[in-house]
Design a protein around this nucleic acid. Structure first.
Length: 828
RNA sequence: GGACUUGUAGCUCAGUGGUAGAGCGCUUCAUUCACAUUGAAGAUGUCAGAGGUUCGAACCCUCUCAAGUCCACCA
């Protein structure tokens, strides 16, 4: 053994070994009870940031349960991150001197698709470097055809149940990015803007937005305001920059008598409060601002000006006409900005799809209150409930191309919306007209990721073996029978086999392995012919394919795709058991508390809804997961939030290079209570790197003492007791056993911090400082058994935290055929 | 405006009503022994402040102060 542990030469080698052996698959414990975690899918297009390294918590749980003998699944995936990704792509276009308007929708989509697919391996490679034991054979992408299909189904179900509706509502619209946003995507900033006191006939009112006055449909006062009683319900004549006009005075309690003059202009199309007032008083909507941020014809001579310019000019003219009473220049207020480009959000009336969230939220609240879903740490429960109790309807339309297009078709004859499960609708269901146009919008990304647990599990057939690649080496046609050559370790006789297209993940065949040779298994018998749609000729098949995929080039060599296509129907697959039947609800949903509302709450709402829809009556099975575990955020060494704009982002990969994955993992788990933020600490990383080296040298000592004569013992704790003759040997066995119980208890309670601290303290200050120093001088066969045996137990307990160094030591001391990752946890 | 989190050694942070803890840093000594060292010993605290409950409070309650985060957003 080298004097120093070298993580650089170890980590990649060990990871490939694990992956090749198939240890990341839950099937390594075929008889274990299911334990599952779905990885929160990182943005496919972006490299990982430090927050993602915190998913180490999930790897610890998965490795722990795999060693306990559970059928442990950790399912990876990637998110298309609709708006985020399109934003980045448009920046790239900008640098090339182009814009998204230079491309047709399909072309733009294709460009972004390639861009994302090109970048996706970066993120996946980083997850591997962290040592994450994800089952890569099951990875999913939010834009996979089968996932999209499920998203479509959910949407249609919600629509049919009246939980999705189309409405003209004010939306948070960014005129710069050309799309609307949900409430969560608007950031607020304190700004100093003049407050103008404008004369409205006999009244004076205060406003920051004089340019929107062309869209005023009323003036409001408080119903009890004695100053204005005589105007309520009357029309007043006002002088404006566009001439005389008449406007109604209404009374509404929302008016604050203390603010300004106690009089408010009502501009329903450009202010959220005014919109609600207008609904109550049945006032008309008059839009004066276009979606590109300019004024429209309602603004008369100000038409075509951008909002900012229009405001300036309107004010100047008002001053010239003596319509401004006074201006408060020191007025500060908070205005909504686009979270991405930081331009002001313009409230604009737009027809959008909304999810009626109240009934869904009610169920989501109940499952947590009843303990069907437990949230750790408990304090986060409030955050969750608070959001759901005050939830407003969710705008899921986005005016961008990069996303899942909404499967809704508007009849141009009768105006009815036809919602489908993704298929193209050509005939109106209401008036039978055949002039339908699909909505150009796409879904909010969180609408699809909100369905992630059931979507990923329903589209994985992991307990069937997956074919074509890498396990299928080649395929040969012999008359009517297709023969596949398979890698020898891939299949056993009797295995059910599924053939899946590696590119788009669609399924094109099922079979059972019927005959085995020594090294290859060749013959596959398709037992269930009903899955095949048969065509009389290849040409016919190709024609059918072309009809639905006009853009795709079809040649005889695309045959695999053709099959893939014909099998791509969930109806056909419904009776085929999927991972869903085994692993749903998942055991743990682990993520940062910052997306509790964005993501977790929505998964609960949509998850319960879809399960009930499918007739699941068992409340335990309606929820998408049983436990929610929330970790804190990682801040920079000064305690500031890492962000690109601050320029203080630390690339996790650099730290992996410098300190090794094990040290980084241990540092993140150690010294911070679950759910609390932590600051990146280089001294802690350094301490943990020293700890890996300490472990390594403990192994060196054992190897040294063996002198080639003594064989390290891999006996279980109870058996070790037989070899413990000396009182100190007896003591260390007992202490190790106690530690094992403690670590087990702490991991079951998601207390990673204390588990890590106990391991660190025991390994260094108990095992090394005291026991090894003691046993040094009295090594014999028995004490050596105890020394190596208890050390192996320690390695096992440490393995979920520090998988690489422990596995490498294990290989060196106990043999290359022994794998810690699939070894048995020291206690049951 | 509403809520949440945090405040403990020089720094980063654990702490479960019962003697105040770890890592890094600091001081002294030992050491080339499995250990880019490591080991032994040591110093360092008004547990943000005030009040209360309790036999007993860093921990429970109230208030104040400070830092941070989230939510709602009134012209």
């Amino acid at each position: 053994m080298d004097k120093i542990y070298n993580h650089k030469t170890t980590e990649e080698k060990i990871y490939s070994l694990w992956e090749e052996k198939g240890f990341f698959k839950p099937e390594v414990n075929p008889k274990g009870k299911p334990y599952s975690i779905i990885l929160p899918p990182p943005n496919a297009n972006a490299p990982l940031h430090f927050g993602h390294a915190m998913y180490v918590v999930e790897d610890i749980l998965i490795r722990f349960h795999r060693m306990l003998g559970d059928k442990a699944l950790w399912l990876p995936g990637a998110d298309h991150a609709g708006f985020e990704t399109q934003f980045v792509f448009e920046k790239k276009l900008q640098i090339e001197g182009k814009s998204r308007f230079d491309f047709e929708r399909e072309a733009l989509f294709g460009l972004i698709w390639d861009f994302v697919q090109g970048n996706r391996p970066v993120m996946e490679g980083q997850l591997k470097r962290l040592g994450f034991s994800l089952d890569w054979t099951r990875k999913k992408f939010t834009m996979d055809q089968d996932i999209v299909k499920i998203v479509h189904e959910t949407f249609k179900n919600l629509f049919d149940d009246g939980l999705v509706y189309r409405a003209e509502r004010l939306v948070n619209y960014c005129t710069y990015d050309g799309t609307s946003f949900s409430d969560l995507e608007v950031v607020y900033e304190e700004r100093k803007n003049p407050l103008y006191y404008i004369k409205y006939g006999p009244l004076v009112l205060a406003t920051t937005r004089p340019e929107t006055k062309f869209g005023d449909t009323a003036v409001a006062v408080h119903p009890d305001d004695s100053r204005y009683q005589k105007y309520i319900g009357k029309e007043i004549e006002i002088e404006t920059v566009l001439g005389k006009a008449r406007i109604k005075v209404i009374a509404d309690k929302f008016v604050d008598r203390e603010f300004g003059t106690g009089v408010v202009k009502i501009t329903p199309s450009h202010d959220f409060d005014d919109f609600e007032v207008a609904q109550r008083h049945k006032l008309p909507l008059v839009r004066v601002i276009n979606f590109d941020g300019t004024m429209n014809e309602k603004a008369g001579k100000f038409k075509g000006l951008y909002v900012k310019q229009a405001r300036k000019q309107v004010v100047e003219e008002m001053q010239a006409k003596g319509l401004i009473d006074k201006i408060d220049e020191n007025y500060t207020h908070r205005i909504g900005l686009c979270y991405k480009c930081k331009n002001p959000i313009e409230p604009l009336p737009l027809e959008q799809w909304f999810v009626k969230t109240k009934p869904l939220a009610k169920e989501a609240i109940e499952v947590v209150k009843k303990g069907k879903i437990k949230i750790y740490p408990k304090s986060m429960e409030k955050l969750y409930l608070q959001f759901l109790e005050n939830i407003r309807d969710w705008n899921i339309s986005r005016q961008i191309v990069w996303g899942i297009r909404i499967p809704a078709f508007k009849c141009q004859d009768c105006g009815a919306w036809n919602v489908t499960e993704g298929e193209i609708r050509e005939k109106c269901g209401k008036c039978s007209g055949n002039n339908l146009i699909q909505d150009v919008d796409t879904f909010d990304t969180w609408f699809s990721s909100g369905q992630w647990p059931y979507a990923t599990l329903k589209t994985n057939y992991g307990h069937l073996r997956m074919g074509f690649h890498p396990e299928v080496v080649s395929q040969v046609y012999k008359g009517k029978t297709k023969t596949y050559r398979l890698r020898n370790h891939a299949f056993k006789v009797g295995d059910r086999v599924m053939f899946q297209n590696t590119k788009d993940k669609s399924i094109f065949g099922f079979g059972v392995i019927t005959e085995s040779k020594e090294t290859t298994i060749e013959k596959i018998d398709y037992t269930d012919k009903t899955h095949f749609k048969t065509y009389s000729s290849l040409g016919e098949l190709m024609d059918a394919f072309r009809l639905r995929n006009p853009d795709r080039e079809v040649t005889p060599s695309t045959k695999a795709y053709l099959y893939a296509y014909e099998f791509h129907s969930l109806d056909e697959l419904k009776h085929i058991p999927t991972d869903f039947d085994i692993f749903y609800p998942t055991t743990v949903m682990e993520t940062g508390y910052d997306i509790l509302r964005w993501w977790v709450a929505r998964m609960v709402m949509l998850g319960i809804y879809m399960q009930k829809k499918l007739g699941e009556e068992n409340a335990e099975k309606q929820v998408p997961f049983k436990n929610v575990v929330l970790h804190g955020l990682v801040n920079d060494p000064l305690g500031k939030k890492m962000s690109k704009s601050r320029g203080n982002v630390v690339n996790p990969l650099e730290l992996l290079d410098q300190y090794g994955a094990d040290a980084v993992r241990f540092a993140l788990s150690y010294g911070t209570a679950l759910g609390n933020d932590q600051s990146l600490s280089y001294s802690k990383l350094d301490a943990m790197r020293k700890f890996t080296n300490k472990l390594w040298n403990m192994a060196r000592f054992i190897e040294f003492k063996a002198e080639g004569k003594l064989k390290p013992s891999n006996l279980a704790l109870d058996e070790l007791k037989q070899h413990a003759k000396h009182k100190n040997d007896k003591e260390i066995v007992e202490k190790t056993q106690k530690l094992a119980f403690k670590i087990t208890r702490l991991l079951n309670a998601y207390d990673f911090n204390h588990a890590a601290q106990n391991l660190y303290d025991f390994a260094w200050h108990e095992f090394a400082d005291i026991y090894i120093e003691d046993v040094k001088t009295r090594i014999n066969e028995n004490s050596f058994s105890v020394l190596s045996g208890t050390y192996l137990v320690l390695l096992k307990l440490l393995h979920p935290f520090m998988p690489f160094v422990t596995e490498e030591i294990n290989h060196t001391l106990f043999g290359k055929d022994q794998y810690l990752i699939v070894s048995q946890w020291p206690i049951k």
